[in-house]
């Protein structure tokens, strides 16, 4: 069980403006500003859930993750993870969790991953029998094979990430904090890692909290998403619900076999056209009637009904944010 109540994390940062004159001035006058990285977030996550954190760059996802894992001390509010207060970093708590950051490595650069594994076994007091069993399982699931005995510096990005994951899971944590675990990986590697995470979640009934720039990761892995923007929580629920609230209606696309005037189509809803192919956004309530009307028309073929793609939803969600969380 993870519970955050009115969580806030503010930082005071020094502003260093560009230019010589400003630099000289800052010798005497330092300008500080408070950044509200997380500004009043509450949620509860049950054991075994897979939850995705979404939001643009700088929304507060990583800060929230770091607060949950105990690296950051909240400015106010409370956090509780499996009955522990994270920032106390008690041994019992640390043995239950793991944090994987796609952009930061813990494997020793000059040595094969096996050496870091051995180090972590000692650090976490993993009994040898359990260590061997876990190693066997991870080797199989992640297809590690000969990788663990090659020096880390010789591994490819994807191989490296697989070993990082194995390293982070050797002590069989039941709460996984994954910060951009698939960043920079190619599609097949992303797929492999995604499958592995789901598998681990089911085998060990582990709670998984994930942030990712790749929407597909979140769609494939997380039945529940928490959307954060500007340090505030703006959606907590399933993806379908997010799409519904953000983008009511369905997208109906079809091909025209004979020309049809734009304004006739526009009566149905917002349209986009590309040659003969037309996409119309139609509200849920009017869907049945509109589709019936279209199908009855002799000049329409190849009709399909879809939910709006998540990318479009996210773009709308963050339209005034810096960058939408898509790639």
């Amino acid at each position: 069980m993870i519970r955050a109540t009115d969580l806030r994390k503010h930082f005071r940062v020094h502003k260093r403006p560009p230019g010589l004159a400003a630099a000289v001035r800052s010798l005497w006058h330092r300008k500080y500003e408070t950044v509200k990285a997380v500004d009043g977030i509450s949620f509860a996550i049950a054991r075994g859930e897979r939850v995705g954190f979404l939001g643009p760059n700088g929304a507060g996802k990583t800060t929230t993750l770091k607060t949950l894992s105990g690296l950051l001390h909240p400015t106010s509010g409370t956090v509780e993870v499996e009955g522990h207060t994270p920032f106390r970093r008690e041994g019992a708590f640390l043995r239950q969790i793991t944090l994987v950051m796609g952009q930061k490595q813990q494997l020793l650069w000059d040595l094969p991953p096996a050496d870091t594994f051995a180090m972590n076994r000692a650090l976490y007091d993993v009994p040898v029998a359990q260590f061997d069993a876990t190693m066997k399982e991870l080797t199989e699931l992640l297809d590690l094979g000969p990788l663990v005995t090659k020096p880390t510096r010789q591994l490819s990005l994807g191989e490296h990430m697989k070993c990082e994951l194995a390293c982070a899971l050797l002590h069989r944590p039941t709460t996984l904090f994954l910060d951009e675990p698939t960043i920079g990986l190619d599609v097949s590697m992303q797929l492999a890692i995604r499958e592995f995470i789901r598998d681990y979640n089911q085998r060990h009934e582990a709670t998984v909290i994930l942030t990712s720039h790749y929407m597909e990761d979140v769609v494939a892995l997380c039945p529940r998403v928490i959307v954060i923007d500007g340090g505030r929580l703006i959606h907590d629920g399933d993806l379908r619900g997010l799409i519904k609230t953000m983008h009511p209606g369905k997208l109906v696309s079809f091909t025209l076999t004979a020309p049809m005037a734009d304004d006739e189509l526009a009566r149905l809803g917002a349209i986009t056209r590309e040659g003969n192919r037309v996409v119309v956004q139609i509200a849920e309530a009017a869907l049945r009637e509109a589709v019936g009307h279209l199908l009855a028309s002799a000049s329409v073929t190849d009709l399909s009904i879809e939910d709006p793609p998540l990318e479009v939803v996210m773009r709308a969600l963050f339209k005034d944010g810096a960058a939408p969380a898509t790639t």
Binding site: G70, L71, L94, R95, M101, Q105, N120
Partner: peptide, 18 residues
């Protein structure tokens, strides 16, 4: 500088020792 210090703090052993 690289942020890998975070991993040290999350190990169940004394950080100064590590």
């Amino acid at each position: 500088r690289t942020g890998a210090f975070d991993y040290v703090l999350l190990k169940p052993a004394d950080s100064q020792f590590l």
